[in-house]
Structures are given as C-alpha cells and as structure tokens.
Design a protein around this nucleic acid. Structure first.
Lengths: 228, 228
DNA sequence: TGTACATCAGTGAACGCGCGTTCACTGATGTAC
DNA sequence: TGTACATCAGTGAACGCGCGTTCACTGATGTAC
C-alpha cells in the first residue's frame, strides 16, 4: 500500500515516537517499552522507527536525556521566577523537583528508577545530561553561600572522600560543604519524592496530604543549612 | 523420562525457586523475571513451578513479602545487639537498613523500585509485611522518645494530615512528632540508599567512599531530632 | 511549464526467539493390608 | 515381609502471543534540466 504523506500524519515522527514511548512507559513501566507497541499506536509499522533510532536502546537513551533536561529546565525556571530571597529560591527549586516528578512519573522513573532490563545506557551522553541538571542545584546553593546566608561550619567533622570527588568533578571552587549540602538535600528530596511516587506514604491512599509533610521537610533542610 | 527423586536435586523446591528468582532478578532486574528461566537454571521444567505457585504474580508477591521480612529482621537484629544508647541504637538501625539494601539490591528493588510491569500486587499481604517492617522503626524512635532523649517540640508548625493518618494506622499513642521523625528519617535514608544503589552518587565510580557521607547524614538526622 | 530522475521515509513479509500457561501423562514414593 | 494401590510432584508437548530486527520493496516528494 502507498506510504501516507509524511506530514499528514506526524509532522515530526521522531518527536511523536518519543512522545508515544513516554505515554506507554507511564502506563506499563519502562521495562515494558516496545517498539512494536509504539508503532501500533502511531499507525505505522515497527521498522519505520529504525529511520529515527538505530535500535531500542538508542530510543531509551534519548528518553533519558530528554528527562534529565526537562527536570533541569523545570528547576531552572523555578529559580528564575523566585528572586525574593535565597531561602525562597531554594524552597522553590525543591518544590519544582517534586512537582516535575509527580507530573512526569514515567520520566522520573527513567532517570532514578530501577535500571531497565536488557538496556545498557550509553553512559557518556546520559552522564552529561545528569551533570547539567546537577549544576543547576549547585548554582542555587552556591549563590546562597556567596551571599553569606548558608552556614557551612560544622557540616561534617571530616570531609567525606565522596564530597571531594564531586568537588573535583564539577571544578567547584567554593566551600566543599556546599557540595555536601547539595547532595544531602538531593538525597532527602529524592527519598521523599520516590516514596511518595511509589505509594509508600499513602497510609490511607490520600495522596494530597503529602504536600504539608514535604513542606515541613524542606524547611527543616534549610534550617539545617542555616538558611532558615 | 523418569522424574528424578525429589530430595536428590532440591530438598525444598519452593525455596530453591525463590532463591533462583532472586538470583535472576539481581542479574537482569525484576521486570525480566521469567518462570522458564528459573526452571532452566534449576534443571526442571517450567510447569513444575505451578506446583508451588499458582502463577508468576504469586511468586513475585512471595518474593516481596520475603524481602520486607528480611529487611525487618535485619533492622531488628541491629537494634537488639546495640543497647549502649538510644543514639547508637538508631544509628545502628540506619546502618542496618543501608547494609541490607546494599547486600540485597534486588530485594530492595522489589520493595522500593519501579513497579514491575504486568504485575499487580495483592496489596493485603504486602501491606501487612510493610507495616511490620515499619513497626520496628517506630518502636526504636518511640523508645528514645519515652526515654526523653528525642526532642519533638518544633518538629512541625502545623501537624500534616499525613502524619495523623499514619498515627491512626498504627494506633500510635505517643507524640505524633515521633511518627513524623520516623517518616522523615526513612525518607532521608531511603533517598541516600537508593541514589547510592543506582550509582547516582559515584562521581568517580568508587562506591566505598559513600560510607563516610552516609555516616555524616544519619548523624545530622539525629542532631535534628535532638538525640545527638 | 513539463519531464526524467534520485532520494528516502515508509511498507509488509519474514526470521528466530522466549514467554506464561494448559493438559494429559508417568512413575517413584509411602501406606494399608 | 510382600503386594496392591492412591498420591502427587514432575514431564513434555502444545497453545497463542509479542518481541526486536532484517530485508527487498515502493511510491510520493522535490530537484535539475
């Protein structure tokens, strides 16, 4: 049968493929991602996808990179809007992180969830995207530290080797404790978000009630850093 | 061909099935769990598994329950051994949590990782196991609170609705802030552990360096609760 | 403006594979007499 | 101690399915003349 005029069905098929992939991941989980299922939903044949991605792994990698970039953009946007105070900026970035995760659980999964079976990431490209996202967080806390509102003394007794590795990786020139706080905050927020996302917080299946708990926790985080 | 004498090959085939399942999950991820692959490794045929589990989902459910119980036991053991002080007991339980997760990443995944595609948990039985594990954590902090070494004032300005739900669920009769601290600590530790587990902390792929960072963090947790 | 042609995004058939589950069966085991 | 029998854990064939990937192909599009 004749090939339908490309522009009629999908103005940008590469984007449509990724979009459909995300939709299916949201429904069935990243591990169940299938090229044939994507093709079916787009009313194309499976081999057509190979014009845009050399194989399934390449598609997954593209999705992961997109996810990192979207998360980074969401956080960055929250920082720009909030210029009232460093405390508000940091709180806003934490809320943006959670907000993005709740709005795009399938992409959050892609980044932070269980590794997908039979998929091996092409580390270079995903690592770069991950570092980009991390940079936004570092910048936010660095700005607070430079402004003198972030108290780093007593952050740790002996500087963990891990912190030094991160400082080196990002060529960070400020107080290493800032990096420590970035990683600690990230871990805390990630813990909150991922427990919420997978339903471990809902003692009574009322998801909305997590808001206040999250708010309390990120404020405690700022208290620890001396910002609040 | 003749059936091999049961006791010769696998003294307890049900246990062997679960053990092999765990092994394969560790290697390929929970999503890739396959009855046929398990059978292959055990040198039996796939239908034989149906003598022990009515279907694949039942096996997964059993694995999840086992995982919750193993985690609970690991934490409980750490509490019994450490009776020097409440601070040490709580630190020990945090270390036990991490230690168990690192030693059994596949089971940790089963509990806290991305939900498995095409698997729907039989909630009743897994919820009970989850509650059992949570009870151990609650008891540890409750004991510290009763001994007066856990400072709950100022834990939150307004009690989050979520905390009340948890207090009700466990019929907890102490200060609701204790429950708040349990959930907060759990989230923090879970965040640390899951980022470590999925390699997000290894800036330079040296996993051992996380130890000191984790130690610093759980101490900060205790400081926040007034125990340290 | 009209025609010949190269491009290349998509098709459809085919490959070999592994999966969960069902079914009728078999034969070693332990028990009752 | 010896024999008949019920039990039931395992077998092997079969089912229908969806998967990633390959291949030779087709025909609409845009371009060069």
């Amino acid at each position: 049968m004749a090939r339908p005029k490309q522009s009629e069905q999908h103005p940008n098929l590469e984007v449509a493929i990724k979009k459909t992939a995300r939709k299916q991941i949201a429904k069935k989980g990243a591990a169940a991602l299938s090229l044939r299922a994507i093709a079916r939903e787009l009313h194309i044949t499976a081999p057509a996808i190979y014009n845009y991605f050399p194989n399934r792994d390449a598609l997954v990698t593209a999705l992961i990179v997109d996810a990192y970039n979207a998360l980074r953009d969401a956080i960055r946007a929250s920082l720009v809007v909030n210029e009232t105070s460093h405390a508000e900026r940091i709180l806003a970035s934490a809320r943006a992180y959670r907000g993005w995760a709740l709005a795009h659980p399938e992409e959050y999964n892609l980044i932070f969830g269980t590794p997908i079976p039979n998929y091996s990431a092409s580390a270079e490209v995903t690592d770069q995207a991950a570092a980009d996202a991390m940079t936004v967080l570092i910048d936010a806390l660095d700005a607070a530290w430079r402004a003198g509102v972030l108290k780093t003394e007593g952050a740790f007794t002996a500087e963990p080797e891990m912190i030094r590795a991160w400082v080196d990786k990002f060529g960070y020139r400020g107080d290493p404790a800032v990096i420590h706080f970035v990683l600690a905050s990230w871990a805390h927020i990630h813990g909150l978000v991922s427990l919420e996302l997978y339903g471990h917080f809902s003692a009574v299946a009322e998801p909305d009630t997590v808001d206040a708990f999250f708010e309390t926790e990120i404020r405690a985080m700022l208290v620890r850093m001396g910002v609040l």
